[in-house]
């Protein structure tokens, strides 16, 4: 850390004003307000661009299917709530069945990923063992191979194990850290954590397990939160894996159910599909809105202050 410390602290102060804890406080309060207003204005403008499609989706979910694609605008003349009531019961099972199936898979995936990936990441980032580099390289290769050529051999393996048409192929791999993305992510985070912290714990006589659970995990808050949020979102919206493994429609997850509204060669029930899309997006949005708190909170415990 020493070289970084000196780099961060220039020998001669760049400015001559009285040093202040936060530079913002050095700016006059009038300027600060103007600047803050400008920033908010920019962010709001950007937000509109970002959110327009979602607003359109939301508004469209209250329109009859026939008019959805004739109006790119956001005006709503009437609330066509039938999309929701019909959409909920239009498929073989009521929609909450699919929501529940997705929930089970997602919870399993989150737990699996957090446990297994953090273990592997700790080993890669902090432990010195033989062939570490080789294993790490293999792990990276597993990210690089496109899923479409892996899926058939994998299907054959799970079929031999008798696990097709169960959620095991969707959840078990997460407990075995097959999402190398998260292993790598956590490795990078751990390597950013000051080594003095676990060295200190080691000198105090802690074993690896104790260092991992008592020192590392608490420090990995943002990384764990990020992994959890991504796992939730990606699992929740994953289409291909459940498509391949689930055959019984009562076991379908939400993305499979949503596709059932589509029929490109005759008419699709867009209204119902949009309504149910909103139903499935709301939990994701809430997860993100509240989950991101942990991105911030996790750090309060970090070495600095």
């Amino acid at each position: 850390m020493t070289d970084l410390d000196t780099a961060a602290l220039p020998a001669t102060p760049a400015r001559t004003e009285q040093p202040a804890p936060r530079s913002q406080q050095a700016v006059s309060s009038g300027g600060r307000i103007a600047r803050s207003l400008l920033k908010h204005l920019m962010l709001i403008l950007a937000s509109i661009v970002m959110i327009y499609p979602l607003l359109w989706l939301l508004v469209s979910s209250f329109r009859p299917t026939e008019v959805i694609f004739r109006t790119p605008g956001l005006w709503l003349n009437e609330l066509f709530v039938q999309n929701y009531s019909e959409g909920w019961f239009a498929l073989g099972s009521p929609f909450h069945v699919y929501l529940f199936n997705s929930l089970v898979v997602t919870v399993g995936a989150v737990v699996g990923n957090l446990v297994s990936c953090s273990l592997a990441a700790y080993a890669f980032a902090r432990l010195k063992f033989r062939l570490r580099t080789l294993w790490f390289a293999i792990m990276l290769v597993t990210i690089m191979l496109p899923i479409h050529v892996i899926v058939v051999p994998q299907y054959i393996i799970f079929n031999l194990l008798g696990w097709v048409n169960t959620i095991i192929p969707l959840v078990l791999p997460k407990f075995l850290a097959t999402d190398a993305f998260f292993v790598f992510l956590m490795v990078q985070f751990i390597r950013g954590i000051p080594r003095e912290l676990d060295e200190a714990a080691r000198i105090d006589g802690c074993g690896h397990w104790q260092i991992f659970t008592r020192v590392m995990l608490p420090l990995m808050g943002p990384a764990l939160a990020t992994s959890a949020i991504f796992t939730i979102i990606w699992t929740w919206s994953d289409f291909f894996t459940p498509l391949i493994y689930l055959t019984d429609p009562t076991k379908y997850t939400v993305p499979l159910a949503l596709r059932s509204f589509l029929d490109a060669t005759s008419g699709s029930n867009w209204g119902a599909m949009f309504a149910m899309s909103i139903v499935t997006l709301v939990p994701m949005f809430l997860v993100f809105l509240f989950g991101q708190k942990f991105l911030i909170r996790g750090i309060a415990t970090t070495g600095g202050k």
Binding site: V115, S116, L119, A120, Y122, A123, F124, L127, K128, F129, R130, R132, W135, I138, M139, T142, Q154, I157, L172, P173, F175, L176, A177, T178, V183, G207, H208, F212
Partner: peptide, 22 residues
């Protein structure tokens, strides 16, 4: 390099199993 062999492979175990099996 081999200092933490045992611990390293224990921590890596789930990933290794996943690698071999899946």
């Amino acid at each position: 390099a081999g200092r933490d062999n045992l611990a390293g492979y224990l921590f890596l175990l789930p990933w290794l199993v996943g690698l071999v099996v899946i």
